[in-house]
Computed example of a mutant assay.
Amino acid sequence: MKTFVLGGGCFWCLDAVYQKTMGVSSVVSGYTGGHERHPDYYSVCSGTTGHAEVVAVTFDEDVIPAEVILDMFFALHDPTTLNRQGYDVGTQYRSSMFYETTEEKILFEEAIERNQALWSRPIVTEVSRLPVFYPAENIHQNYYAKFPEQGYCQVIINPKLAKARKYYSAWLNA
């Protein structure tokens, strides 16, 4: 099993797609990359903690290649916008990849290079060593499954799920 910690805007969006991805055994929404110890949702949303909203995606490479997990990441958000995804603005929504090993760092850098061809502007995704990962509060875990009728889910997450189904249907459970 391998775990990647990825930030692509609001963690609910990445969580919703990776929860439906074959070979993914767990997705944990959380916070990392900042200076505040034990942050919570409200402090991270304030933009003062330095943390990004991220997901820790644990998957089986015998079922789904690491490259597919990473290419999905680049398809599910705009990695060319600095510190924003759509209406979500601030460093907490930055495009980010946090590595634990040199091998992961290389995979992340290769994914950026591979996916740059799909974007007309430069990818600004931050690649950093993973500091402490703080799991988010329970309400944020598997958020889309809990609240599919919520407005954010309908307007923001549903189009991302539709895009994932269009391009990655072979890897999705639903």
Rank of each mutant, 00 (worst) to 15 (best):
E137I: 10
A66R: 03
V28Y: 01
L82S: 07
F73K: 02
K2F: 11
E149T: 15
K146V: 03
E126Q: 09
V44T: 11
E149C: 04
S95E: 04
P131S: 13
Y167V: 06
V155M: 14
A52I: 01
V28R: 01
P159M: 12
R121P: 05
G151R: 11
I112S: 01
L82C: 08
A52E: 10
G34I: 02
R129H: 12
E103C: 06
Y134W: 15
E100A: 14
P131D: 15
C153P: 09
I157P: 00
K20E: 15
D62E: 15
V155D: 12
N142L: 07
Y18E: 04
I123R: 03
G47N: 08
V54H: 01
K166E: 15
Y93V: 11
V55P: 06
Y167C: 08
V24L: 01
S26G: 10
S169M: 10
A136N: 02
H35E: 11
Y99C: 02
Y144T: 02
V55G: 12
G30Q: 03
V63I: 15
Q154E: 11
E137M: 11
M97E: 09
P39M: 07
G8P: 06
P122H: 08
A170K: 12
K146H: 09
P131C: 13
D78L: 07
F108M: 08
Y93N: 04
E104V: 03
Y31M: 11
D78F: 08
E61K: 13
V54L: 03
G23R: 00
H51Q: 08
K146F: 07
A66I: 04
R129W: 05
V132E: 13
K163V: 12
L107G: 04
Y134H: 14
F4I: 08
F133I: 04
E67F: 05
V57H: 05
A52G: 10
G7I: 00
D60L: 02
L14V: 04
V124Q: 03
D60A: 15
N158C: 11
I139Q: 12
Y87T: 12
Y152M: 01
L70S: 02
L172Y: 07
W119V: 07
E100D: 09
N115A: 05
P131H: 11
T102D: 13
G33K: 00
A111C: 03
G8S: 08
I139C: 10
C10W: 06
K160H: 07
T80M: 08
Y41W: 12
L70P: 01
L161A: 07
I139L: 11
Q141Y: 01
E100S: 09
L14K: 00
D15L: 02
T81E: 12
A174E: 13
A174V: 10
E53S: 11
I69M: 04
T81W: 09
L70E: 00
A164S: 07
Y31E: 05
F147H: 14
F98Q: 01
F11K: 02
R165V: 06
G47K: 04
A117K: 13
E137S: 09
Y31L: 13
M1I: 13
N173Q: 14
R84T: 08
S29A: 14
H38A: 10
G90T: 13
A145V: 03
N142K: 10
G33L: 01
F98H: 15
Y168Q: 06
L70I: 06
S26I: 05
G90Q: 06
E137F: 07
K105R: 15
N83T: 10
H35Y: 09
E110W: 03
I64Q: 06
V27L: 00
